[in-house]
Simulated assay, not measured.
Amino acid sequence: MASTAVTVKDVCPQEFIATYARFLKKTGRVQIPKWADIAKTATYKELPPSNPDWIYYRIATLARKVYLRGGDGVGTYQRAFGGNRRNGVRPNHFADANSGNIRYCLKQLQSLKVVEVDAVKGGRTITATGRRDLDRIAKSIVEKRNSAKN
């Protein structure tokens, strides 16, 4: 039976992000900053994330976003992770996410050689090594799902 190529686009996003986050935590190559346990992901949030491994999930999400659409910068990802600022009795308005968390996660991906700065457009693009690693994780998800069916 010939195996077909599996990419990140072929698997469920939640499943991919959770699997890649577990992989990042298991490898231990990601440095967790001191401020990770008290930092909020956006100014409009009332509390920091309840998951202690939130930074691994944010890194995995950013890796997937760069994979799908490279050339975007921190500002684009701020808007992607932004949300509704609740203004009490006044109407809600959209607010961007914090750029420091996003920038730190992108730098960690750069140190892992998953993404690089695009010299032409600016922003970040996926490297060949990063594409191979993410596709390998996507393939393991599909193989696990297929073995569970049989």
Rank of each mutant, 00 (worst) to 15 (best):
C12V: 01
D118N: 15
D10Q: 07
I38S: 15
K149H: 08
A95M: 12
G82A: 09
K149Q: 11
Y57L: 11
R124N: 15
V115H: 04
T4D: 06
L109R: 07
T127P: 03
A128H: 12
E116M: 07
K144V: 03
R85L: 10
T76V: 09
A128Y: 03
L24C: 07
K25G: 08
A97I: 04
G100C: 00
G28P: 04
E116C: 06
K113D: 15
R29I: 00
F94R: 11
N101L: 12
V89W: 13
A63H: 04
Q78N: 06
D135R: 01
P48S: 10
T41M: 15
N92P: 01
Y56N: 05
I32N: 06
T43L: 10
G123S: 06
A60R: 07
G82L: 08
P48Q: 08
K9C: 07
L106C: 14
T19W: 00
R103T: 09
L106I: 09
K144M: 04
F16V: 01
V142W: 01
I17A: 12
A119F: 01
I32T: 08
N51H: 10
D72I: 00
V66D: 12
T4V: 08
A148K: 10
A21C: 03
K107G: 13
R136Y: 03
A80V: 08
G123D: 04
L109W: 06
R79H: 09
T19M: 07
G28D: 10
V8A: 09
I55G: 09
D72Q: 15
K40Y: 03
Q31E: 15
N101E: 14
T43M: 14
D37T: 11
D10A: 11
L68D: 09
A97N: 08
T76I: 08
V115K: 02
L47T: 10
G75I: 02
E46Q: 12
T129I: 09
D133N: 12
L134C: 03
N101I: 13
L47R: 14
L62R: 06
Y67M: 02
Y56A: 12
K25P: 00
G88M: 07
T127V: 04
S99E: 13
A138Y: 03
L47P: 00
I141N: 02
V30K: 05
N51Y: 05
G70S: 07
I126D: 11
G88H: 12
R64Q: 15
N146F: 02
T127N: 07
W54M: 02
